[in-house]
Design a protein around this nucleic acid. Structure first.
Ligand SMILES: [Mn+2]
Ligand SMILES: [Mn+2]
Ligand SMILES: [Mn+2]
Ligand SMILES: [Mn+2]
Lengths: 223, 223
DNA sequence: GTAGATGTTTTGAGTAATCAAAATAGTATG
DNA sequence: CATACTATTTTGATTACTCAAAACATCTAC
């Protein structure tokens, strides 16, 4: 059985590999993402390579093997179903569930996970809009774009909020930008580095590009 | 923060101290209960003593301090609420939940536990009939007796089944002896080392004294 | 094409938990 | 009371994970 640490590393390698273009993930990135010093990441990666979970090219970087990706998707499935369960069944705030799930994902059995999944009616997305892999390890690649890639006047639906910082999530919720919300890009100015969106009840929110980068939308053709 | 291991030791010391009469719990008992070799228990107990959770008398044994008992009851509360939640909300079998709770008890936050507790309507007992300590650390001491202490003809209600072996629990459930069941001691023979009980629908079950010792009942005055 | 700067690996060390097996203390037995 | 048995503690090792700091490799600039 993989330890919690191994599961966390493999999951993080998967997530980092998603967001970067390159084939090989540099050690420094991994160390930073895992909050460990570089030497620790090197040591760990060697044991991951021993277990056949990653391919390791010294001074080059790493990539997940087939088996590594399978494990990563398993952990991700657990994590996201647990998040959905904590929000929908236990009524926790979406800003808190990531941290909880970070621990629970390593101890919840398949049986318990299946029950949660059934109780939730086999959800496709977690509370932050991240897709939930199937138990077979298939994951839906959504056609979504960063908010800043819209043009003024565009209609869109908030699809995902890709940050786990509770403060940020609470701010987003207070202003009604949760996944599923229909929005209208009222003005987008790359020079001023900001975007204004109009929400259903004619409220408006202004976000700088750093914040807007965390909001991913599904373009929506009006009418 | 105490590690999972520390929590497991302290909880086990509490449980062992309950079931034995003596004030000091011998090292051997603890080692056996924790499934470790005696040397491991000695090493661990020294660190528990350092942390002020137990008093340790070398070659005598150990006893929980005030703080140790508080921690034990906290863990026990978590364990039992989780068990109740897994059975009542997720629909797991009562024979399986002990093992699940053994892991979950160390990672479920206070917030999540409170939600579970509320959703269950603040249960007093877990699925096996064990009392759930309050968040203040108070635990109801029930006036219950081993089944073998009854006399032929006695009425009683099954209050607790004190074994976590899934096979045994499944057997008990198949024969309808779950907590809450009204029973009638139709014959009890100490020489033959066995007891026969009659259940609501006139079914009967025979148990040897070893099995009967795990069934605790609340005597019930008929009429 | 040598000199830095940057990123990575190595080395040495520490914590938490465990086991196997030797040493020791305490108790019971002839 | 000496011997033997039993329970407990000690000692020496191992596994998993981590950090600090030194050593090393690679790429960049001048
Ligand atoms: Mn995790
Ligand atoms: Mn999420
Ligand atoms: Mn446990
Ligand atoms: Mn129980």
């Amino acid at each position: 059985m993989p330890t919690s640490t191994v599961e966390n590393y493999v999951k993080q390698i998967y997530l980092q590999q998603q967001s970067r273009a390159a084939d090989l993930l540099p050690m420094g990135q991994l160390a930073a993402a895992m909050n460990v010093v570089p030497g620790t990441a090197t040591a760990m990666v060697k044991t991951l390579a021993e277990s056949g979970l990653v391919e390791y090219e010294p001074r080059g970087g790493i990539r997940l093997t087939e088996g590594g990706a399978r494990l990563a998707l398993h952990v991700l499935r657990r994590h996201r179903i647990i998040e959905a369960f904590l929000v929908d069944v236990l009524g926790l705030d979406w800003s808190q569930v990531h941290e909880e799930a970070e621990l629970l994902e390593h101890v919840v059995s398949d049986k318990v996970l299946d029950r949660m999944d059934a109780l939730l009616n086999h959800p496709q997305y977690d509370p932050h809009g991240d897709p939930i892999p199937t138990s077979q390890g298939d994951i839906a690649e959504q056609a979504i774009l960063p908010l800043m890639s819209c043009k003024s006047g565009d209609q869109a639906i908030v699809a995902r909020v890709s940050d786990q910082d509770p403060e940020f999530l609470q701010y987003i919720e207070r202003h009604g930008l949760v996944p599923g919300t229909q929005i209208n890009v009222s003005s987008l100015n790359t020079l001023a580095d900001s975007v204004e969106v109009r929400l259903p009840k004619d409220k408006t929110v202004v976000l700088g590009s750093n914040a807007a980068a965390k909001i991913l939308v599904r373009p929506h053709i009006a009418g």
